[in-house]
Design a protein around this nucleic acid. Structure first.
Length: 258
DNA sequence: ATGGTGGCGCGGCCA
């Protein structure tokens, strides 16, 4: 089973990139963030033609999350408790026996701003929601754009980024609370190239210079993490014409028979 | 340099 996450920064602007990537990797579930469309404007048809089902919760111009699944999803929740505000940033569903929570955590603007405080509150609500989900679903993954780099090695220049939004200590502590309740960052279960990032600013040739941060994650419950056989960032789409500023992250799981 | 690039949607917000 393959699970992927990708902040596409507009599904309409990135439709060809996403369809090409889907055809190449054939994930069982691809979670998207920043679709930037209301539900009625989502381009369902091309995904259905590719043999996929779409669960989407979005709004005009901002935010929006989707799960693209090979099998029909079960028990989809598009307004998770505590994460159900005007901003469409979370959904949950079950596919292939795995509970998948797809999140687009608020960016936080800058340390100390109102949006920063909202981001920390959002993390607290996410922790509460995931704790409840874990009790019902031992095989659970929380994926998406968390807008936080966990460690020094996830930032091209940790000294430059210390106390900055996306890497401040309170944000990292908030992300860590998800690990404290039992989730595992499966990316670090495997050997990775140094300088592995998932987001590069559009400005000043950041991608070409690999000035990035690892802020998109696949966090798994311990029972599910035990089945994880690979996890990697695919930088390829970030190098295409008119790319998203994020690259997709993909994890592969094996469930032995019997 | 309080900049810079990009999406949405057509001025300014958001990232």
């Amino acid at each position: 089973m393959k699970v992927a996450t990708w902040n596409v920064n507009s599904i309409r602007a990135r439709l060809t990139h996403v369809l090409d990537w889907l055809a190449l990797h054939r994930p069982d579930v691809l979670c998207l963030q920043e679709t930037k469309v209301a539900d009625a404007e989502f381009p369902y048809e091309p995904f259905q033609s590719a043999g996929y089902h779409v669960t989407h919760v979005g709004q005009k111009a901002y935010n929006g999350v989707a799960a693209i699944t090979r099998a029909p999803a079960a028990n989809a929740v598009t307004a998770p408790a505590g994460l159900d505000g005007e901003q469409k940033r979370a959904l949950a569903l079950t596919v292939g026996g795995v509970r998948v929570v797809n999140v687009y955590v608020p960016n936080g603007e800058r340390v100390g701003s109102d949006k920063y405080e909202l981001k920390l509150k959002w993390f607290a609500a996410l922790r509460r929601y995931v704790s409840a989900e874990l009790e019902r679903h031992p095989l659970l993954t929380v994926v998406g754009d968390f807008n936080v780099a966990p460690e020094d090695r996830d930032v091209h220049d940790p000294r430059l980024w210390q106390n900055q939004v996306l890497f401040s200590a309170p944000e990292r502590a908030a992300l860590r609370t998800l690990l404290d309740i039992g989730l595992v960052d499966v990316f670090r279960r495997f050997e990775q190239p140094p300088g592995s990032y998932t987001w590069w600013d559009y400005r000043q040739g950041a991608f070409r210079r690999n000035l990035g941060l690892r802020i998109d994650h696949i966090l798994c419950s311990q029972p599910l993490a035990g089945h994880c056989r690979a996890c990697f960032v695919d930088k390829t789409p970030r190098g295409l014409e008119r790319p998203s500023d994020h690259a997709p992250v993909l994890a592969e799981f094996r469930f032995e028979a019997g």
